[in-house]
Amino acid sequence: MTDSQSARARSAGDKRRRLMSAAADVVHRQGVERTTIADIARAASVPTGNVYYYFKTKDDLVAAALAEHTGQLERITAELDRLPDPRERLKALVRGWVEQRDLAARYGCPTGTLAAELGKRSADGGLDAEAGKVIRLLLEWVEGQFRELGLPEPDGLALTLVGAYQGMSLLTNALRDPDVTVREGARLTAWLDSL
């Protein structure tokens, strides 16, 4: 491969990554139905016509947004895994949710709101199931932390924690009140300490 070909390949990879990141952000802020390919292209600083080289349809971009959510979750959990104690990892996860309270107040949970919207579509090609996979990854990671703590029913505890997060995100968004996340985050942290 020549230097010129290598540079083109890096540029193409960079455009694809920018489009995936922009798709995740724009779809979170606007929802699937209100988002156009042109919106995503604009957010990624890529000419609209170039988008079709990487993604043939809007659903391909939604799938890319889900892949971006998966990547973000993997990066977050990898960072949390650097903490020595599973309880501290879980509390740091809750702190991360609280730090995103203003975004949640405006748009809700990125993955949860997308899963809810995709669940209402007919013939969506399985995108709703893909959104569920991202949430399942979070559940599995949280369950692993509870299991490492040696607590009984780690799967149920994981559902409780992730369900509480989805609930507080929904209420924070519906009420447009970031303090809901602050209060519920403190309650979740106290709950984790009590286990």
Rank of each mutant, 00 (worst) to 15 (best):
L127Y: 00
E143R: 15
T70E: 12
G125Y: 01
R106A: 15
A174I: 12
G31N: 06
G108R: 06
T189K: 05
T172I: 08
L90V: 05
Y54C: 03
R42Q: 12
Q5P: 00
T160W: 14
C109D: 15
M20Y: 08
L195I: 12
G112V: 01
V134F: 10
D3R: 12
Y52A: 05
L149T: 13
L138P: 00
A174V: 14
E130K: 15
R82A: 11
E74H: 13
L195E: 08
E143L: 04
L73W: 11
D3G: 12
Y52D: 03
V98K: 07
A44I: 02
S122G: 10
D124M: 00
Q100F: 13
P84W: 07
L114E: 03
R147N: 05
T35C: 02
D39I: 05
R10T: 12
K120N: 02
L61W: 06
R8Y: 10
H28S: 14
D124F: 03
S6V: 12
E79A: 13
F146E: 01
Y107T: 01
L73Y: 12
R75T: 09
P152K: 09
R75P: 00
Q72K: 09
G156W: 12
I40M: 02
V134G: 06
Y107E: 00
G132T: 05
A92V: 07
R87P: 01
A63V: 04
A7L: 14
Y52S: 08
S45E: 15
Y52L: 06
L93N: 08
V162F: 02
D59I: 02
V27Y: 01
K91H: 09
D155N: 13
L149R: 14
L195C: 13
D155T: 11
A158W: 01
R18G: 03
L103F: 10
G163V: 06
N173I: 00
A190W: 06
D81V: 06
A24E: 04
E68A: 13
A78D: 14
V27Q: 02
T36K: 03
D128G: 15
H69E: 11
P47F: 08
T36V: 04
A41D: 05
E99T: 10
A9K: 14
V162H: 07
A43C: 07
E88C: 07
A67D: 14
I37M: 07
S11C: 05
L159S: 08
G132R: 12
H69Y: 13
Y53I: 13
